[in-house]
Design a protein around this nucleic acid. Structure first.
Lengths: 227, 227
DNA sequence: ACAAAAACCGACAAGGTTGCCGGTTAACGG
DNA sequence: CCGTTAACCGGCAACCTTGTCGGTTTTTGT
């Protein structure tokens, strides 16, 4: 089942598990408020940026007292560390849910020709999500905040590993040319990340032209992978 | 002279002029400390992010009293507005200086074949500069800060216009296919912006592969423009 | 030389943020 | 049923940031 595969991938990103993994009420409730705090933290991150994220604001958004907050995350950096895992988890989950939803609708006739186009479109969709926005903030802030980078970089690398594994599993056509698939994946990510930032400046039309060019490149790489 | 062209482009970005444009000492000095404040603000922006940028810190870095600071920029948003123009100005200057420096070294034999490769490399170099880092911070922060976006977006669009004009002037080979040149430019910017952020995660080797692929694409577009 | 204007200075109040801690409520285990 | 442990609460002190303002120094124009 494809859903089982999804859960497997997600568990690699968040090994400790979420609320659904606990039976005793206390642990479950604890994990639940922990999640709500992390969710609120992501909201605050997206709205105020990394430096503007305040533990005060997070507690207010989560509807939790500052004391409870302190119980789960003794200080700001602990909150940030928790948030990083949460962000990568959400980002992966967002894409995978999108993906399995799309698989069910897919016409088997298209299945052989169009998967690359669909993958590029799905990725573009995921890039515009709140989850990716949070990732972006963290990635940019980590560029010159050693404390943040220390927690962020390993998480990002883990995400990249799991991502490539999933791609490999989802697109067996590429299996005999993994470096080309990686190139196509990296390229798509780079282009669409850049597009996310520059898009509002250059306008819809130019964005669309770049997307088309990107799809052409991915399909060209796919052709090359067949040989 | 190519330097004259450089100054012309720069003047479009910063119409009001810098310290070198004033004769009377008072105006000159004023403009000078203004610049030093903005420079310090960029430092602070790059180190602390947009939300973490504090006027206090800026004044300290610039070696200026808070009073003087207030004289030039009555409040935070005024400082930000000044900073935006300053950032785009610096970014353009950085690239153009790089460009004219490279022009002097260029072998005339290569001149016909390699300019695209050189342009891509120069752009990659400029993307890694402090000036671009500041741009990145602003662009990301402006995504959900309406007050910032109000000042940032027009400046970004102006920059884009001037940039395209300069490209058009520097690469007359493309002149009969301006939309292809724009596509190549947009594409390069998007890829390298994405690479700047993802680079530390995916590692040098993969970055290099993407760069090579990008160069191939630009050259293919250049070929298409000839017809 | 002198008055006006511009540039610059340092301190203050109001408000927000962080980390910390004593105390309270709820759940678990024997 | 009760002691122990975990979850949660709200206030305090120290610090930082922003905006504002009265006063001082330097330059300019006459």
């Amino acid at each position: 089942m494809v859903v089982a595969r999804r859960d497997l991938a997600l568990r690699k990103i968040r090994p400790n598990g979420g609320p659904e993994d606990f039976d005793r009420w206390q642990q479950r409730k604890s994990s639940l408020t922990r999640e709500s705090i992390l969710d609120a933290a992501v909201d605050s991150l997206v709205e105020s940026g990394y430096a503007g994220l305040s533990t005060n604001d997070v507690a207010r958004r989560a509807g939790v007292s500052r004391g409870a907050m302190h119980h789960h995350f003794p200080n700001r950096i602990a909150l940030v560390r928790g948030m990083i895992e949460h962000v990568f988890y959400s980002r992966m989950r967002y894409f995978l849910d999108d993906f399995v939803a799309r698989l069910k609708v897919i016409d088997n006739a298209d299945a052989e020709l169009q998967p690359h186009v669909i993958a590029v479109e799905l990725h573009w969709h995921s890039v515009q999500s709140r989850e990716f926005e949070a990732y972006l903030r963290l990635a940019v802030a980590a560029r010159n905040d050693p404390e943040l980078a220390e927690a962020f970089d390993p998480a990002a690398k883990l995400y990249d590993e799991v991502w490539l594994e999933e791609m490999d599993h989802a697109f067996p056509q590429w299996r005999n040319a993994p470096e080309l698939m990686r190139l196509a994946s990296d390229f798509t990510q780079a282009v669409q990340l850049g597009l996310l930032i520059n898009g509002s400046t250059i306008g819809e039309d130019r964005v669309r032209m770049i997307q088309n060019e990107l799809i052409g490149i991915v399909m060209r790489l796919a052709e090359a992978a067949k040989r």
